[in-house]
Design a protein around this nucleic acid. Structure first.
Length: 865
RNA sequence: GCGAAAGUGGCGGAAUUGGUAGACGCGCAGGAUUCAGGAUCCUGUGGGGUAACUCCCGUGGGGGUUCGAUUCCCCCCUUUCGCACCA
């Protein structure tokens, strides 16, 4: 090795050593505490991006730290390998999705390995392999048995021109991504998972997740959206049946002056038949039925509706009230019908004003009196029920339950709880996903594929045209099949599963990645689960994390998983962003193509107009502000890439890219290398251990700093994940050691302490920059591998200050600083503080009213005036 | 509109329970070294006043609690994110 820091040679060397020694392979070991750290696995899109580098650097610090702390660490990696881009590549370039995916995996695996990430690669999985997705199918069959998987008709995005189903991300502004035709909603039979069965548990168990960010918990809570209320019947006038509504405000029922229905409501058209309103209702339904809910009220929530011509009875008031269709009522929530209380619901209020419907105040606030004529908006807060028959005078909160109870007693309805959460539609009319293991027989109907016939393997002989329905229909070998029950003519389900299914249990697969009797070995699951630390982007705060929680609970109820929750602690890392440049004429520009200079202003290479330095934005191709990690590693090495992303910001915050910041990280490593390398003789000459030595004051200070750095770095990693401050503390230690080395006149005691400081620093750096740390460890004569060295300990005694710096304030302003022995009494400290000449100047003979003493920190002298 | 988080030097960010605001890094300035450039090392670096010890101001703005507030409370402004008609 040369005296110069050669990142590439070092990194290749250590990656080879780790691979040869299988350094990060783990097995169950009852003797050690286990620790399962997991980063969200990537989609093999082709190349890793900065977000991956950041995510996996954070995870690797945790994994390496815990290993050095004596934990048996499971740190696996795999590939979320099914999905749309592979199929798009097939359609656009004629590459088979499998080839495309496997090539990407190979390339990206190499990129990850060049980062020096400490994965147990023996446990690598790819969800597109039959050995993996057969268990998706197996789980589907268990769900099917328990009716957790069921089929019903539902709407999909449909491009009439391409004649194909579109995924949500293929719909751009309501148009097809390929041909730009308007997308319509088409009804298809689809498979669903009954996640709503678990709504209450998914909500309740959020309480257990103390290690999750509040933000994510709130998002999940809102997504599940529990509402407590009542379902109440409003009998139709001139008809036997009744209209059932759902409300969370039964206390306002005496103010219900009409009822609103969703346009999809089954009775919407029927009610109008034979009335003068029939034509108007038909037109209204026609107008809105193909418009997605998001667009229906796009114009500032403009409320629109139409009278159906029919009436129903409010059983509480005995009145007959009109039934309207309204654009803002959702068929999917509640019953698709709501009682409208204009005085106490803003939407109903606007609707009533627009269509001149009666407004009746039935809740009065305590501090003023509302009248229907004077209110400018709905009153939605609490108060006392008025004009509510026998319930008048009741505070509205208990009133909610009283009304609901009354309705139950009379047989008019029941108490009800509703969730915003919908069942999870898992059918995709796609090729590159897990085939749904179902067979349709002409005689026997829907027949599950027998478990012993799994996996149902994806056929290879499929054309990728981007037209028509699922490509699987085109494979005769796949499609045509004998019924497992009657051997008669049958065909396979051609839908595949949503790729979120794959990622809903992959963390369980890692515990026994090659197990072939079940999705995972329950014994190993018992040892490793739950994931102690999960790390990934906040964009998965709802869907992926909710589905994974659902699967864990469902697999627990099947007797497989033994935990209620999959992820004990969750860290959501911020995104990586960078400044952008744009020209008013030519849009976003790469910084490398700009003309001019930072100082004199940049110019557009095409039109020479001045370029505006845009905002700092998330790195994206379209904004042209991407930095490719591969370039970074080629230029500086993996350790620099890791160090920069860890040092520039704490993990949960956004990280703003800075080329100069990268230079700074690299400079630190070269400096570290140089200082250790140039002082190698320390290891030949210095005594082994400085702890027992009698040291002069300045060396005691240095030793104290070494111990304090160990404490600081340990705390920052362990308790806060604040790697930036941990790295800063190590930098400070290097600065102090460097100063001590330059102090000259090095005594043998000094050499011993400095050597110990440098060694400690190398060990502390291991989780962050494992390659250069390992190499320096070896260069300084160690024969053990650094990743197997235990994490350093600090001693409370060595951290203890000998002298204290006490701040002296006068009336809360710092006026002096005094140094006292650590064991000085309060009395002594106050005396010294008052005697300080600068402090005296501010006291100026004024009367001391009070002296505040904060132990070991400060004295505040309060004087008059 | 509702909900959440945040606002600190030229920049990224420190200050863990109310106790020296600006650690560490970047940038910048000066110096050393060098034929020169680069690299490296040293010193300085919130703003203002001062010959100087020192003093005044300063954590988005305004008020409050406190001996003492970046930190706690109230009001306002800005930014980011999430949900957006869920009855």
């Amino acid at each position: 090795m040369e005296e110069r820091y050669q990142a590439h040679a070092i990194e290749e060397k250590w990656q080879r050593i780790w691979a040869q020694n299988q350094a990060f392979r783990v097995n169950e070991d009852a003797a050690k505490p286990k620790y399962y750290v997991l980063e969200m696995f990537p989609y093999p899109s082709g190349r890793i991006h900065m977000g991956h580098v950041r995510n996996y650097s954070i995870g690797d610090v945790v994994a390496r730290y815990k290993r050095m702390r004596g934990f048996n660490v499971l740190h696996p990696m795999g590939w979320d390998a099914f999905g749309l881009p592979a199929e798009n590549a097939a359609i656009e370039r004629g590459v088979h999705p499998e080839i495309w995916t496997q090539e990407n995996i190979l390339y990206m695996k190499n990129q990850l390995q060049r980062m020096g990430l400490s994965y147990d690669w023996d446990r690598e999985i790819a969800t597109c392999e039959p050995e993996y997705y057969r268990w998706n199918q197996w789980i589907f069959l268990q769900f099917f048995k328990k009716t957790l998987a069921y089929k019903r008709s539902s709407f999909v995005n449909w491009c009439p021109s391409c004649e194909t189903v579109l995924a949500n991300e293929q719909v751009i502004d309501g148009a097809c991504w390929r041909c730009d035709s308007a997308v319509i909603q088409k009804e298809l039979e689809q498979w669903f998972f009954r996640i709503t069965d678990y709504a209450e548990q998914l909500l309740g168990d959020l309480e257990k997740l103390n290690g999750w960010p509040d933000k994510v918990l709130t998002m999940q809570r809102n997504w599940i959206g529990k509402s407590i209320g009542a379902e109440i019947d409003f009998p139709l006038v001139g008809c036997e049946s009744a209209l059932r509504i759902f409300t969370t405000r039964p206390d306002t029922i005496f103010g219900a002056t009409f009822v609103s229905l969703a346009v999809e409501h089954p009775l919407a058209l029927k009610l109008a038949q034979g009335t003068p309103q029939e034509k108007a209702v038909e037109a209204f339904i026609e107008r809105f039925k193909n418009v997605s809910q998001a667009k229906r009220g796009a114009e500032e929530g403009e409320k629109e509706g139409v009278f159906t011509g029919a009436y129903c009875r409010n059983l509480f008031t005995g009145e007959n009230i009109p039934i309207y269709l309204a654009n803002f009522v959702l068929m999917e929530y509640g019953t698709g019908a709501v009682m409208a209380v204009p005085a106490h619901d803003q939407r109903d209020f606007e609707f009533a004003r627009k269509y001149d419907l009666p407004i009746r105040v039935v809740i009065q606030p305590n501090d003023r009196k509302l009248t229907a004529e004077t209110i400018a908006e709905a009153y939605v807060d609490d108060g006392v029920m008025v004009d509510s028959g026998a319930f008048s005078g009741t505070p509205n909160c208990p009133g909610k339950d009283k009304i609901a109870t009354h309705a139950e007693e009379k047989g008019w309805g029941k108490k009800a709880i509703r969730y915003r959460l919908r069942d999870w539609g898992v059918s995709r009319q796609r090729y590159w996903g897990t085939p749904i293991p179902i067979i349709y027989c002409d005689k026997c109907g829907t027949v599950p594929v027998p478990e012993e016939q799994l996996p149902v393997v994806l056929p290879k002989d499929v054309p990728f045209t981007g037209k028509g329905g699922s490509p699987l229909q085109e494979s005769k070998l796949f499609f045509e099949v004998a019924c497992p029950k009657c051997r008669g003519h049958a065909h396979r389900e051609t839908d595949t599963m949503d790729t979120f299914v794959d990622s809903s249990w992959y963390f369980l697969r890692y515990v026994s990645a090659r197990f072939d009797k079940a999705p995972f070995d329950p014994e190993k699951g018992r040892y490793w689960m739950a994931v102690d630390q999960y790390i990934g982007g906040v964009e998965h705060a709802v869907l992926h994390l909710l589905y994974a929680r659902f699967f864990t609970k469902a697999l627990r109820d099947l007797g497989l998983a033994k935990v209620d929750e999959p992820f004990t602690n969750l860290l959501t890392q911020g995104m990586v962003s960078k400044e952008t440049y744009r020209c008013s004429e030519h849009g976003w520009l790469f910084p490398t193509e700009l003309l001019g200079s930072e100082k004199d202003g940049w110019q557009c290479p095409q039109c020479r107009r001045p370029v505006i330095k845009g905002r700092v934005e998330k790195m994206s191709k379209s904004k042209k502000n991407i930095v490719d990690p591969e370039d970074l590693v080629n230029l500086y090495g993996a350790d620099t890439a890791r160090l920069f992303t860890l040092f520039a910001a704490p993990p949960e915050k956004d990280l703003e890219w800075s080329d100069q910041g990268v230079e700074g990280a690299y400079r630190f490593l070269t400096r570290l290398w140089r200082i250790v390398f140039q002082n190698r003789e320390l290891w030949a000459n210095a005594a082994a251990n400085g702890e027992a030595l009698e040291l002069p004051a300045e060396l005691r200070d240095l030793r104290r700093m070494i111990h304090r750095t160990v404490k600081k770095v340990s705390d920052d990693i362990e308790n806060r994940f604040h790697f930036n401050t941990a790295v800063a503390a190590i930098m400070e230690l290097l600065n102090a050691l460097s100063a001590a080395l330059q102090g000259g006149g090095r005594s043998s005691a000094g050499a011993t302490v400095i050597k110990q400081g440098l060694e400690t620093m190398i060990v502390l750096l291991t989780p962050f920059v494992p390659h250069v740390a390992s190499e320096l460890w070896e260069q300084t004569g160690h024969h053990d591998r650094l990743d197997e060295v235990p994490w350093p300990r600090y001693s409370e005694e060595a951290i203890e200050e000998e002298k204290l710096l006490i701040v002296v304030q006068v009336n809360g302003k710092v006026r002096g600083k005094i140094t006292v022995p650590a064991d000085a009494t309060q009395e002594h400290i106050e005396t010294v503080a008052l005697a300080d000449p600068r402090v005296q100047g501010f006291l100026d003979g004024k009367k001391v009213q009070r002296v505040v003493y904060v132990p070991r920190r400060l004295v505040n002298i309060v004087v008059e005036g």
